[in-house]
Write a protein that binds this DNA or RNA. Structure first.
Lengths: 128, 128
DNA sequence: TTCGTCTACAACCAACTGGTTGACAACGAA
DNA sequence: TTCGTTGTCAACCAGTTGGTTGTAGACGAA
């Protein structure tokens, strides 16, 4: 399930081990064995993680004798950033408009506080 | 597994249905029933999706009689953006340094092209 | 060639996920 | 009060995931 590119990228980064691998590959390319060393899991498990990252387009592997050095493909980050920024901007713009409307409502009917809907700013405070 | 905040956020957005819900909540708040209407799944399934989004801190729900209006918490996006931008910048900076080093190597030993390591720019082209 | 290293592949297992159905609680309306 | 609407919870099921172990291929070194 979730076989589109964006889903694969988000799913790949949903695992802390894989995010750590990405963080280390941002510093320098590395082989499977080098990447596996600090973790308390088998090399095969790390190889599976790398396959997930590779399928998501976050990592590419080249052939160098029997070694398979891994390289971070940072361009894929753009895909996520674009998606995130789009909806964040959309949501924030809506909040600004709503704030303006509510400010007007306050001015016009601040004598009738019981029938007025809950301010969205109060709702937003609900989640810590 | 993966019970930290960032993992929950990435995992929540790895599902296309949940991303669509977020996209719609960016436009306006909605109830579970309203959100479920366009999808070909049960209301219970959508309720589960909302629970995942809520646990990730992406959505908050308030009580309004028997309705449970859902509201997008756009601030959580910052968490992802920060993580992504950090490693993208790190990787891009490394590429720039490497490019500079390789350019120098080209100048100094362009007479010996066989013993030189593969240019990283060629490696990066491997993944489409 | 033989040996050791690095890696991938296959089979297996437990846990999680995304879906279902059924039961039920909360609430407004009649 | 009774009824319809809205939504949650619990149980269940099939598919995926993240781990394991074992086997085997590819390759440099001796």
């Amino acid at each position: 399930m979730a076989d589109d590119r964006l889903s694969r990228v988000f799913a790949a980064l949903a695992d802390p081990t894989r995010r750590d691998i990405v963080a280390r590959l941002a510093v320098e390319d590395a082989t499977v064995g080098e990447l596996a060393a600090p973790y308390d899991v088998s090399v095969q498990a790390v190889s599976k993680h790398l396959k997930v990252l590779e399928d998501a387009g976050l990592v590419s592997r080249t052939k160098d004798a029997q070694r398979r050095p891994c390289h971070l493909e940072a361009e894929v980050f753009d895909l996520m950033t674009k998606w995130i920024e789009r909806y964040r901007r959309q949501a924030e713009e809506r909040f600004r408009r709503l704030d303006a409307v509510l400010a007007e409502m306050d001015d016009e009917e601040d004598h009738d506080s019981t029938s007025r809907p809950v301010r969205h700013t109060e709702q937003r405070g609900a989640a810590s």
